[in-house]
């Protein structure tokens, strides 16, 4: 049986949007897929050793469930982002949802290949020493080398 392949581009660096790449990558790996994730722009935040800085913003996000309805203008107030972030974290814990750290660790264990986009690492002056071990650096051509042979390609 030929091994199936999944290629993901991870472009977002918020707590909520960090989940889809790691959930899909770890699950696909468990199903026997060979998986590669290309991290670019804000998605590079997901490669940092310490993920505690990731936030979720209620601003410009009218679909986010809130305990009480709040006008959009209130979302800019200091502390709103922190409140939304801790609300989401405690809800996830209560519902048995894995932490991002845990899912990422499972991806690493399952040998999901992770590539950091060299151009955006330079653009935002990321220090690759802040990234977890085993991250490769590459460009768009490096992504297509794997994506071109993949059964599924996702842009997240």
């Amino acid at each position: 049986m030929d091994e199936k392949k999944l290629a993901i581009v991870a472009t977002k660096g918020t707590l909520d949007w960090g989940y889809p790449p790691f959930i899909l990558a770890s699950t696909a790996a468990a199903l026997g897929y060979s998986v590669e994730i290309f991290f670019t722009f804000y998605g590079l935040q997901l490669l940092k050793k310490d993920l505690s800085h990731l936030r979720v913003s209620p601003l410009g996000n009218p679909a986010m469930p809130m305990p009480i309805p709040m006008p959009t203008l209130m979302m800019v107030l200091p502390g709103m982002e922190g409140m939304a972030t801790s609300m989401m974290k405690s809800k996830m814990k209560a519902k048995g949802v894995a932490s991002l750290d845990e899912l990422r660790e499972l991806c690493v264990e399952a040998e999901v290949r992770m590539i950091a986009c060299q151009m955006t690492v330079d653009l935002f002056e990321f220090d690759t020493a802040d990234f977890i071990d085993g991250i490769e650096l590459g460009g768009a051509a490096a992504f297509f080398e794997f994506a071109g042979e993949s059964d599924i390609t996702l842009f997240i």
Binding site: S26, A30, K95, A98, L103
Partner: peptide, 13 residues
């Protein structure tokens, strides 16, 4: 028990 998607599958694997 108490675990949510995708943890039951990952632990099973």
């Amino acid at each position: 028990r108490g675990l949510n998607c995708p943890l039951p599958i990952l632990r099973t694997k």
